[in-house]
Design a protein around this nucleic acid. Structure first.
Length: 103
DNA sequence: TTCATGACTAATT
DNA sequence: AAATTAGCCATGA
């Protein structure tokens, strides 16, 4: 099984209105060192449309960078539409919206 | 086919 | 405490 597919399986399980971090996902697989690959999996994103990559952010709760979905604004709209609010720094409150896989 | 790099994070210095 | 190095897999040239 490719590492990527495992990432997609997890990311697809992120419920609407929640977000997850790369490191979190990597840790769920028991391999925190592969956090980069998680991010890269979404970058490649062959399952575009199936994997809600906009719900995956870095550990700071920031968006990936601005090139991902056609602009940070677009991603922000998507997340706002799911009930996620950004702070003034365009960051997400991980304390509130971080996805807990146990639920 | 091989080399380099890329949406990151954690550990070490 | 802050900054830097290391690690990982898959894709592109």
């Amino acid at each position: 099984m490719r590492f990527f597919e495992r990432v997609y399986e997890i990311v697809k399980q992120i419920p609407q209105g929640k977000v997850a971090t790369y490191g979190q996902i990597a840790r769920l697989m028991g391999e925190p060192r592969k956090s980069k690959i998680v991010g890269w999996a979404l970058h490649s994103n062959p399952y575009k449309g199936q994997v809600p990559c906009h719900r995956v952010v870095n550990k700071a709760g920031e968006l990936s960078g601005g090139f991902a979905f056609g602009g940070k604004e677009a991603q922000k709209e998507l997340l706002c539409d799911e009930g996620i609010k950004f702070d003034l720094d365009e960051k997400i409150d991980l304390d509130i919206y971080l996805w807990n896989p146990n639920e």
